[in-house]
C-alpha cells in the first residue's frame, strides 16, 4: 500500500511539473478547455435562472382554490387542515372581504365593485406547490378540485406547459452542446498527451525494458489529463461567474421595467466542483485513450 501511494504521489508530482514546465502551452490548453466548458455551463446556469424566473413570475405556478360562496366557517377550516396535511405545498388564505378590498383598489374594477349590492367573491386559498412539473401540478389540481366545498380550482396549466416545454428544449440544446464540447475537450487532451508521449518515447522505452507496467507509464499522463481538465473546469466556472456578473445589472433593470425584481444567481460551490470534476473526468478519458493507443504503438 505504501509503495502504491508512493508511486501515485510521484506520478502526481511529475504531472504538476510537466504542467508547470511549459506555462504558455498549459495556459493555451486551459483556455481552450475553459471556453469549451463555459458554453454548456453558461447555458445550464441560464436555464436554471430562467426556471427561477418562471417560478417567481406572478401566478405562474400557483393554484387558486375557490371555496363555495355559501360555505360555512368550519368547511373553510376543514380545507385549511387538509392543505396543512399536504407536506409539499405552501399556502395562504385570502378571505372574501380581503379579496373585495384588493379589487376595490384596482382602478378598472373600483367602479364596478362599488355598484355591487353585496360581496360576490368567495374565500380562497393560494397554493404554491414545491413540485412545479406540469404533471404534478395537474394531479394536485385534480385532487384539490375533488375536496368538498371547493367550487373551483384555477391553474394556468397552458402557460406552465409552454414554459416547461421551452425549458426542456433548452435543456436538450445544452446537453447537445455539452456533448459536443466535451468531445472537443477529450480531443484536446488526447492530442496534448500524444505529443507528450512522443516527446518521452525514449523514457517510456527504457522504463518498459526495466520492468515498468503499463499502469506505471500511464499514471503521470492520466494525472496530467485530469489536472488539465480540472483546471479548465475551474477556469470555465470563473468565466461563467464573470459573464453573470456582467449580465446582472442589465437583467435587474429589465426585471424592474416589468415591475418585478430578479437577480441572476451565480454558480454555487457545488456547481464549481461539478464543473471541475467533469473537466477532470473528460481530461482523464482523453489521456487514457491517448496513452493506450500510444503504448500499443510501442509493442
Amino acid at each position: 500500500m505504501r509503495r502504491w501511494l508512493s508511486q501515485h504521489r510521484a506520478a502526481f508530482g511529475l504531472a504538476v511539473r510537466r504542467l508547470a514546465a511549459a506555462p504558455f502551452n498549459t495556459l493555451l490548453s486551459l483556455l481552450v478547455i475553459g471556453i469549451a466548458l463555459t458554453l454548456p455551463a453558461f447555458g445550464y446556469l441560464a436555464l436554471d435562472n430562467l426556471r427561477e424566473l418562471g417560478r417567481n413570475a406572478s401566478g405562474a405556478q400557483q393554484i387558486s382554490v375557490f371555496v363555495e360562496v355559501g360555505a360555512a366557517r368550519k368547511d373553510v377550516v376543514e380545507i385549511e387542515n387538509r392543505l396543512r396535511g399536504l407536506s409539499t405545498v405552501r399556502f395562504s388564505f385570502v378571505p372574501r372581504d380581503e379579496a373585495l378590498k384588493r379589487l376595490q383598489k384596482s382602478d378598472e374594477m373600483a367602479e364596478i365593485v362599488a355598484s355591487l349590492p353585496r360581496n360576490p367573491l368567495p374565500d380562497a386559498f393560494v397554493v404554491e406547490p414545491a413540485d412545479t412539473a406540469p404533471e404534478a401540478l395537474e394531479a394536485l389540481r385534480a385532487e384539490l378540485a375533488s375536496w368538498p366545498k371547493v367550487a373551483h380550482v384555477q391553474l394556468d396549466s397552458a402557460w406552465v406547459k409552454r414554459f416547461d416545454a421551452f425549458l426542456r428544449l433548452g435543456k436538450l440544446a445544452v446537453l447537445l452542446l455539452a456533448g459536443l464540447f466535451g468531445a472537443g475537450l477529450v480531443a484536446v487532451t488526447f492530442n496534448t498527451i500524444r505529443l507528450q508521449v512522443m516527446a518521452q518515447a525514449a523514457e517510456i522505452e527504457v522504463a518498459r525494458m526495466i520492468g515498468a507496467t503499463d499502469g506505471f507509464i500511464r499514471r503521470p499522463f492520466s494525472y496530467f489529463g485530469a489536472l488539465q481538465g480540472g483546471l479548465g473546469g475551474l477556469l470555465a466556472a470563473a468565466l461563467v461567474y464573470g459573464a453573470l456578473r456582467l449580465l446582472a445589472g442589465p437583467v435587474g433593470e429589465l426585471a424592474a421595467l416589468y415591475g418585478g425584481s430578479f437577480a441572476l444567481h451565480a454558480p454555487a460551490a457545488t456547481d464549481v466542483a461539478a464543473l471541475a470534476a467533469v473537466g477532470a473526468l473528460l481530461g482523464w478519458i482523453g489521456a487514457q485513450l491517448s496513452v493506450s493507443l500510444s503504448l500499443r504503438a510501442f509493442d
Binding site: R2, R3, W4, S6, Q7, A10, A202, E203, E205, V206, A207, M209, I210, G211, A212, T213, F216
Partner: peptide, 23 residues
C-alpha cells in the same frame, strides 16, 4: 539506453521508482 534529460542518480533511481521504493 540512458536518459539524457536527467542526472546519473536519477537514471539509477528509475528501476527503484518502478518497483515503488520509498524515495
Amino acid at each position: 539506453k540512458l536518459l539524457f534529460d536527467r542526472s546519473a542518480l536519477d537514471n539509477v533511481l528509475l528501476p527503484l521508482q518502478i518497483a515503488g521504493l520509498p524515495h
